[in-house]
Write a protein that binds this DNA or RNA. Structure first.
Lengths: 169, 169
DNA sequence: TTGTTTTTTGCATATTTATGCATTTATTTT
DNA sequence: AAAATAAATGCATAAATATGCAAAAAACAA
C-alpha cells in the first residue's frame, strides 16, 4: 500500500519546503515517485493534521500540526534520555529498556509526540514495546525516536561503550 | 473605520469559538453588528495570520497564529513583570515606567507578542511609550498587556499600594 | 475645504480545497 | 482459496477561499 509512504513523504516535504497549494505538493510528490490525485492529498493532509496558514508575505503555506499541542516540556525530555538503557529490534518491533520503574513515563513522552510512524506503545516496569504502524520500517522508527528525544542514540551508544569497558575490567 | 474593530472581533470569536468556515464567521460577526463580505474576511484572516487546520474530528477550524512563533519564554515574562513600576495613560498613548535600565527588554517582550492592537513601542532607559493602533482604545491596550504579561496589573497595583503605605510613614 | 493619495471594500470570478459515490485494492474471515 | 468486509483512491463536482479590478471610504496635504 502506497499510503504510508505518501504520508511520510508529505510530512517530509512540508517540513523542508514551503508548499502553498496541494497541486504544488502533488508535483513534488511525483518527483519522488509517488503519484496520487489532489483529492487524496486533501484527505491525507487532514489526517496528518496539516494546516494552511498565511506565510507572512501575502501567500499561504502548509504547516505540520503544532507539536506543542500536547506539550511535553523539554526539560522532561532531558530527564528521560538518561534513563534509557538500550534499544533493541525484535520481530519487526522495537524494544526500549529503561532503568527500573521508568518505562511508563518514557512511553508517555513517546506517545505524546503523536508520531504517525508509531501505532502504539506498551510499557511495563523497565521495558517499552514500540509497535510501528504497518509499512513503517524500524529505520524510520529510529529516526522518529531521534526526533522525539534528540541525542538519544548517541546517549545509548555511549552507555553501551561504558558498559563494555566496565565488563572488560 | 470598521476594519480595526472587525479584526479584534475576529480574533475574539476565533479564540472563543470553533469556526469552520468564513461564512460561519461572517454570521457571527453580523450578530455583533459587524458586517462585511467573505472576500474581506479572507483578507483579514490572512492579515491576522489566522490558519485553517484540521479540528481532529473530520472537520476544520480556524486558529490564531501560534504565539510561540516568536517564542518569549515564560520565565522571561515572570522576570519582566516585577520591573514594571507604573502604567500611565497620556495623550491617548500609554506610558510604562520600569526600574532603571529595564525599558528596552520589557519593550522587547511586548513587541514580541506581535499584538495587533499595538502599533509600536519606543523604549528609553526606564520608560516605554506604547503607541496603540488607530481605533484601539487604551482599555483594549490594557487588556492586551494583561494577555502578554499575566498578572501585570495586580502586580503594579500592589506595588503602588506598598508605595503609598511607605509614603504615609 | 478641496484636491490628492492611500486604504478598504464589494462584486464577480478564478483558484483552491473538500467530498459523494463508484471502483479498486487490501485485509480479514470462513 | 473464495467470500466478505474494510480501506484507499479517482473522478466529477460541490463547497470554500482568494483575488483582480473598480468603486467607495478614509487619511493626508495644500
Amino acid at each position: 500500500m502506497q499510503k504510508t509512504k505518501r504520508l511520510l513523504e508529505i510530512e517530509k516535504i512540508i517540513t523542508e519546503a514551503t508548499i502553498s497549494s496541494q497541486d504544488e505538493l502533488l508535483k513534488k510528490l511525483k518527483v519522488t515517485g509517488i503519484a496520487c490525485t489532489q483529492a487524496t492529498l486533501s484527505r491525507n493532509l487532514r489526517q496528518l493534521g496539516v494546516g494552511r496558514i498565511p506565510d507572512g508575505s501575502g501567500g499561504y503555506k502548509y504547516s505540520m500540526p503544532d507539536n506543542n499541542r500536547n506539550p511535553v516540556n523539554s526539560s522532561l525530555k532531558l530527564n528521560i534520555v538518561p534513563v534509557i538503557q538500550e534499544i533493541v529490534e525484535a520481530k519487526g518491533l522495537m524494544v526500549i529498556k529503561t532503568i527500573p520503574g521508568n518505562a511508563s513515563n518514557t512511553a508517555f513522552v513517546i506517545d505524546g509526540a503523536g508520531r504517525y510512524e508509531i501505532a502504539g506503545t506498551i510499557a511495563g516496569d523497565d521495558t517499552i514495546l514500540i509497535i510501528p504502524r504497518n509499512g513503517i520500517t524500524l529505520q524510520q522508527v529510529h529516526l522518529c525516536l531521534e526526533i522525539i528525544l534528540p541525542g538519544l542514540h548517541d546517549q545509548v551508544k555511549n552507555k553501551n561503550q561504558m558498559q563494555n569497558k566496565y565488563n572488560k575490567l
